[in-house]
Amino acid sequence: MGNTVLVTGVARYVGARLATALAADPGIDRVIGVDTVPPTAFARSGGAQLEFRGIDLRSSDLAKVIGTADIDTVVHMTLLSGPARSRSALKEHNVIGTMQLLAACQRSATVSRVVVRSTTAVYGSSPADPAVFTEETEAAEPPATGYAKDAVEVEGHVRGFARRRPDVAVCTLRFANFMGPGVDSPLTRFFAQPVLPTVLGFDPRLQFVHEDDGVEVLRRAAGEDHPGTFNVAGEGVLMLSQCLRRAGRVAVPLPSPTFRVLGELARASGLLDFSPEHQALLTYGRAVDPSRLWAELGWTPTFSTADAFADFLARHR
């Protein structure tokens, strides 16, 4: 049975919550959290089974931890979209970090389960795509930039690992945008503003996963073998216009070239992370079919897309 779980990316909100939830699980003896900076929420909950290691995924320290700690399950969730560092640093963190981690897992004799947090951004957003993506759908225009492209590369490395180690159960979870009172992402920061720029003449479909459901999905994936790739999203979709009206925000529709330039300016000034893939999402939208995961887990999420957004608004009025 999986007794020792390694969680990467615990300094961030969902990672910290997952580590705490896993530590509370009686079936798990030990949870090792890894990140470059110590988590704040995590330190407070600090149970006896919870350890934190300040490790950069790109360093060889990680291989040492995996080699010595008899780790059974690895939950990899460091995929970053943050604007904090330069693009090359971000890519190195996302892709090189994953390669290092997978290399360490491949050498390990104890790791029997790997869970990777990916994103539905791997499908891109374009007018030539089907309305609803299933796990098999090929993107019409695969993401060529940023975070989404990193995610595509990370998934490629994960598939390669799964081929080389067929004895390890590899579960790739493609999450829709997280939404809820505790989430801090480019999208939640976008919705927290009083006046929002939108793309004139477009009303994208958006899909959210509530943070509680996201943590629960990760916890279940870390606790049992669910090999394969799965979409994770709350039931239903919300149009951007619906979100804005429910939030009582003022929309400022801008022609798409203006929207793009403003987005770049906001990004350069560090005000708001308005990456090109984010702009594509706010123009063409995206919806996925998560039914395969619900059938696999025999569980359905508590929050629909609309519920998750309502819960987010309850905090951000």
Partner: peptide, 15 residues
């Protein structure tokens, strides 16, 4: 309903 965003759409966006 329109101004409050309290209407339903399906996964294709059908309103």
């Amino acid at each position: 309903r329109r101004l409050g965003g309290q209407y339903e759409v399906d996964e294709f966006g059908f309103d």
